[in-house]
Design a protein around this nucleic acid. Structure first.
Lengths: 406, 406
DNA sequence: CTGCATTTGTTCAAATTACGAACAATATCG
DNA sequence: CGATATTGTTCGTAATTTGAACAAATGCAG
C-alpha cells in the first residue's frame, strides 16, 4: 500500500499499459529463459496475440532474440526466446583503497577482460586515467559499439541525484563529481553507486537463475568497514541523504575500542579487517595506530585467515571474536529490518564453515522471534567479484526495472 | 528502480491507465482541496476533458463532492472539489494493557464519540465485547450505514496476510486471530496493525494539510517499549515475518540492565516508561520486579513527568537519563535508515522542551554526517490519540493508495 | 498415407480509453 | 455591449487491449 507522491508523480498515458506489460514480459524471459510465446501468454494471463505483438517489439529493439525450436510432446514446436546478453557489454569499475579494478563483461556479468591499476586518489587524474584506459580496452576486444555504459562502485556515500561522491574516507573524496566527469571523458553513460548497495543490486539482478532472487534482503560487506545494502520490496533503501545502511557505527559497548567515527564500541571497531588483524597481533584496536601496525608487521587479513585455516590458535581466536561481533551486527539487522535473508561478503567468508555457527549462535540468542532467528545467512565469496558484478548491475538493471508509474 | 516480481505481478489491462490517473486525481483533491477541475488538469498535464470524465466517475461513487464556486480574478468561476470525509466513518480501536479505546470518527480522524472499557484479555471474550458494543455505538450516532470499516491497533506483531496477532506480550496473545473473528461478529471489514506502524500510517495519511506529508520517516513510540514504524518511499516496512522496526532491543551496553527480551542493556531497558519510573524510584530496572514496584509505589510515568515539570530534581534526572538513551536509539535510526524526519510519540513528549535538546546532543555526537545529525525530531503528543488516528488510517488509506501495478 | 487432435503463433475486428480540438458557459473590464 | 479570459463539456480520432478465428506445424491412430 504505497502513497502517491502528489508533488512528483508519473501520470498514465495511452501507452502506459504497453510499457508495463512489455517490461513484465522482458522480465519473464529473463528469469525463465528459454521460454516460448505461448508459455509467456499463460504466465501473464493474456492472449497469445498480444504476446506476439510485444515480442516483435522487443525483437526489433534487440532486447531479446529467438533461438531454436524445442521438442515438445505434442503439437507445433515452440520457438524459444532469450534475453540478449552476450553482445551487450559493460565496463565495470571497482575503486578500492590500493587498487582499482576494471572489468569488461556482458550483461550477465561474464568476464571478458579484467585489468587493475593503482588507485589514483586525485579525482581529475583518476578520471583521466580511466579516460585513456577504457577506449583502449574496448578497442582491444572489438567492443566499442557494444558497450552499454560504465558502472562505477566507490567505497563511500553517493548522491544519486547529482552523482557526486559525498564522502569516501578511504580515498579522501568529499563532495566530488566523478560520474559526469567520466561520462564526458568517455562518451558513455556512467552509473555510480556505493559498494554495499551495489553488491545488493548484484544479488538482486545477477543472482541465482530461476527467478528465486530475493526481494527483501540485506547485503553486509565486511572489509574496511561494516556496511549494509538494504533491499525492501525489490527496491534499494538509500535514505534521505544517501547515508542509510550504516549499521557498522552502532555502538554496543560504551567501554569498547575507539572507532574511526569517534564513538566507542562500534560494531565496525570489532569486525573490520583492521580490527581483526589488530586483535590477532594482540593489540587493542585503535584507528590511529592500526595502519602503522599493519605496515610494520606486514600482516593482512588474508594471512590471518590462512593461518586460521591451518590451525593457528591465535588467528582462530581473533577471527572467532570477530564472528561474535558480526553476530551482534547481524542480529541488529534481523530485529530492525527483518529481511528474508542476509548475504555476507568479505574476506572472512573464506572461513565460513568455522565462523558461521558462531554468528548463528549469537543471532539465535538475540533475535526476538524464532523465525527471525532462523534468517538464512549466505556467504558471498570475494572470489566472485561481488562489487564488479554490482557495477555491472548498475548498467544492466535499469533496462529491466519496473516502469515508474503513479 | 524497482524490480518486477515475476511470481506475483499485476499485469496492465486496458483500464489500468484510468485506475492510475483516477487515483492520482483523488490524491490531488485530497491534498489540495478545495481545487478546481482546471487546476487539476494543469497539475496533471492532461486536457480538461479527461478531468471532467474522471471527476464524474469519482462523483458518482461518492469519493468526492462538489462545493460552491469560488471568486476568480477573470473568467468563469471554478467549481471546487472536495474529498468526502465527514459522512464516511470508521470505528477505531486501540487495545492497550489496561484500557481499550473505541472511537467513532470520520475519515479525517475527527472524533464523534470515544468510549473505553477495561481490556478483556481472553480473545473470544474481547471480540464478543466489541461485537456488542460497536452496533450500539453506531446506532446511538445513526452511523450504521456510514461505517466503512473497523481499524484495530494492537501492541504487538501482526501478520498482514492472515491477520493474526503473532505475539502481543502485554495481552499474552500468541498467534491469535482477531481480525476475522471481529469481522464475522460485526459484519464490517477489519484492518489490524501493530501500534508503531499504525502511528506511522496516521502521520502519512492524516498528517499536516497541504501535501507536505513526509515519504521517508520513522515514527518512534516510547511507552511500554521502544518500537518504530519505518516508512520508506511512501511505503511501510513490515519485514519478512512482520517483525521489522524493533530498534528497542538493540543492546548498547553488555553490563546494562536485564531486559524483558532476555538480553542486557537494550535501549528499551533504559527508555521504557517502566524503566524511567524505576530509575526515579532509585531502583535498578528489572522487568520481573518492576511491575510490583509500580503497584506498591503507585507512581506512574505521568506523575514522574508532572513532578519533573514542577521542578523535582530526582524526576528530572531520571527523565534526562531516559532522554540520553532515547538519543542513542534515535541516532541508531538516523545512521541506519537515514529518514527525512523522525516522529516521537509517548508520554515523554509532555516534557519535550527539556528533553529534546538532550536527545539532539546525543544524536549530533553519534550521527555520521552533518545532514543526518540535523534530522528533524517532531514530538507527537499522546493527547491527539496517535494510535486511534492510526486505526482510522488503516481503514481510510487503502482507498487512496497507489494501485498495485507491474 | 490420411485424417484428426493438439499446440504454437498470427491476424483482425471490436471494445475501450486517452487525446486534442472545438464548443458552450460564465465571468470581468473598458 | 463587445472583447477577452477562464472553466467545463462534447465528440471525433488514434492507440491499445481483447478475444476469436485462422494458419502452421507436429504426432498419432487407423
Amino acid at each position: 500500500m504505497r502513497k502517491i507522491n502528489t508533488r512528483s508523480f508519473v501520470r498514465a498515458t495511452r501507452s502506459t499499459p504497453r510499457e508495463i506489460n512489455r517490461q513484465i514480459l522482458l522480465n519473464l524471459v529473463r528469469e525463465h529463459q528459454p521460454i516460448s510465446r505461448a508459455d509467456i501468454a499463460r504466465r501473464m494471463h493474456v492472449g497469445r496475440g498480444m504476446v506476439t505483438s510485444l515480442v516483435s517489439e522487443l525483437l526489433v529493439d534487440g532486447s531479446i532474440y529467438e533461438g531454436a525450436t524445442i521438442d515438445a510432446p505434442r503439437g507445433r514446436k515452440p520457438m524459444m526466446l532469450y534475453v540478449r546478453t552476450h553482445d551487450r557489454l559493460v565496463v565495470a569499475i571497482d575503486v578500492r583503497f590500493t587498487l582499482t579494478y576494471v572489468m569488461l563483461c556482458d550483461f550477465n556479468g561474464n568476464s571478458i577482460a579484467l585489468e587493475t591499476f593503482e588507485t589514483v586518489v586525485d579525482p581529475a587524474a583518476f578520471v583521466a586515467t580511466l579516460g585513456r584506459m577504457i577506449p583502449k580496452l574496448l578497442k582491444a576486444h572489438r567492443a566499442a559499439g557494444k558497450c552499454n555504459g560504465i558502472g562505477l562502485v566507490v567505497p563511500g556515500m553517493v548522491d544519486q541525484r547529482t552523482g557526486r561522491v559525498l564522502n569516501a574516507p578511504q580515498l579522501g573524496w568529499r563532495d566530488i563529481d566523478v560520474r559526469d566527469a567520466l561520462a564526458d571523458a568517455t562518451g558513455f553513460p556512467v552509473h555510480i553507486e556505493n559498494a554495499p548497495i551495489a553488491c545488493a543490486l548484484a544479488k538482486m539482478w545477477l543472482g541465482q537463475r530461476g527467478g528465486d532472487a530475493p526481494r527483501d534482503f540485506v547485503y553486509v560487506t565486511v572489509s574496511d568497514g561494516f556496511g549494509a545494502g538494504v533491499v525492501v520490496n525489490g527496491e534499494v533503501v538509500r535514505g534521505h541523504d544517501s547515508s542509510a545502511g550504516e549499521f557498522g557505527h552502532v555502538a554496543v559497548d560504551p567501554r569498547g575500542p575507539v572507532c574511526l567515527c569517534g564513538s566507542r564500541g562500534c560494531i565496525e571497531a570489532y569486525t573490520s579487517n583492521l580490527a581483526t588483524v589488530s586483535r590477532y597481533l594482540g593489540r587493542e584496536f585503535s584507528p590511529a595506530a592500526a595502519r602503522e601496525l599493519l605496515h610494520e608487521s606486514g600482516i593482512t587479513i588474508d594471512q590471518v585467515i590462512a593461518r586460521g585455516r591451518s590451525g593457528d590458535a591465535a588467528a582462530l581466536a581473533a577471527l572467532e571474536e570477530t564472528a561474535r561481533y558480526l553476530g551482534r551486527g547481524l542480529s541488529m539487522i534481523v530485529n530492525t529490518i527483518n529481511p528474508e535473508q542476509i548475504f555476507v561478503g568479505g574476506e572472512i567468508t573464506d572461513l565460513w564453515d568455522r565462523l558461521a555457527p558462531i554468528m548463528r549462535e549469537v543471532i539465535e540468542a538475540r533475535a526476538l522471534t524464532s523465525r527471525a532467528a532462523a534468517t538464512p545467512l549466505i556467504p558471498d565469496s570475494t572470489g566472485t567479484y561481488p562489487r564488479l558484478r554490482g557495477a555491472t548491475a548498475l548498467v544492466a538493471a535499469p533496462l529491466f526495472a519496473a516502469p515508474r508509474v503513479a
